[in-house]
């Protein structure tokens, strides 16, 4: 479980996050949602420690990130997997080398075991074997996301972060990736945090949702409450789309 308490973050004197408190549940897909520029990426990067928050607490199963030494943060990072918006695969390495990299770096496994584990992870994300030795630039965006997920889970992380996992993907592939993240979260009992503004993704996997609005926590709930809650910030976000307005009207009837 990850808990955030009274988190504040600013850049050059301009406050971006205001007193954010939230709980991200263990073994569930937690989502940070909000409009572009609302501060959700800053929140996610502050939780991971890529940005240092000015005040507050970020508790990883009770361990406060902001009180940790550099060494402790480094050790914590080995419990973390991350899927980046653009996949962030190392373009000088092949697909399988990308997945093997964290294992080679931080495990004592033999070469054969490293390869076995990498293949297991790639099979788990349903990547065809012919792609294993291709370079990241030679595979599709959807396949790149799968490889990035395989790399993220290779060291059996306790915490998985996904920054806009559906960006640049078609709706069908997006659903496949969402389902994959959800399945992996439950199968490996991980605390997963997804940063998204994709409504399909929110309705598909949002077990615990936090809405960020202009740097403040605007709403907290689950996908079931998305259409029924009267929260103004939530309604502004969700019903910006005509389609969802119609869904709401249909529900009211």
């Amino acid at each position: 479980m990850i808990e955030v308490k009274h988190l504040n973050k600013s850049f050059d004197g301009k406050q971006v996050l205001y007193d954010i408190s939230a709980t991200f549940r263990h073994g569930a897909v937690n989502q940070i949602i909000g409009k572009s520029g609302s501060g959700k990426t800053v929140l996610m990067k502050s939780i991971i420690g890529l940005f240092k928050a000015e005040s507050g607490e970020v508790l990883y199963d009770g361990r406060n990130l902001l009180d940790m030494s550099k060494r402790e943060i480094k050790l914590l990072r080995r419990e973390v997997g991350m899927l980046f918006q653009g996949s962030a695969l190392f373009d000088s390495m092949s697909v399988i080398e990308n997945v093997m990299y964290p294992l080679q770096m931080f495990s004592d496994m033999s070469k054969i075991d490293v390869e076995k584990r990498a293949k297991f992870c790639l099979e788990r994300v349903n990547l065809q074997t012919h792609a294993y030795h291709l370079m990241p630039g030679e595979i599709s965006g959807g396949m790149q996301k799968r490889v990035a997920i395989a790399r993220a889970i290779s060291l059996n992380p306790k915490y998985l972060f996904c920054d806009e996992p559906n960006s640049g993907l078609d709706p069908v592939t997006s659903l496949v990736i969402d389902k994959l993240i959800e399945d992996i979260t439950q199968e490996f009992n991980i605390t997963t945090i997804i940063n998204t503004h994709d409504m399909n993704s929110i309705m598909e996997t949002g077990a615990n949702i936090i809405l960020i609005n202009k740097g403040h926590k605007g709403w907290e709930g689950s996908k079931e409450g998305i259409f029924t809650d009267d929260n103004q910030a939530l309604n502004d976000f969700v019903f910006a789309s005509e389609l969802y307005k119609k869904v709401k009207l249909a529900n009211q009837k």
Binding site: I48, L50, K74, M82, F84, Q85, A88
Partner: peptide, 12 residues
């Protein structure tokens, strides 16, 4: 392309 961030996240 966030590859350096990916390394940092891994603890490298």
């Amino acid at each position: 392309t966030e590859q350096i961030d990916a390394l940092e996240i891994m603890g490298v």
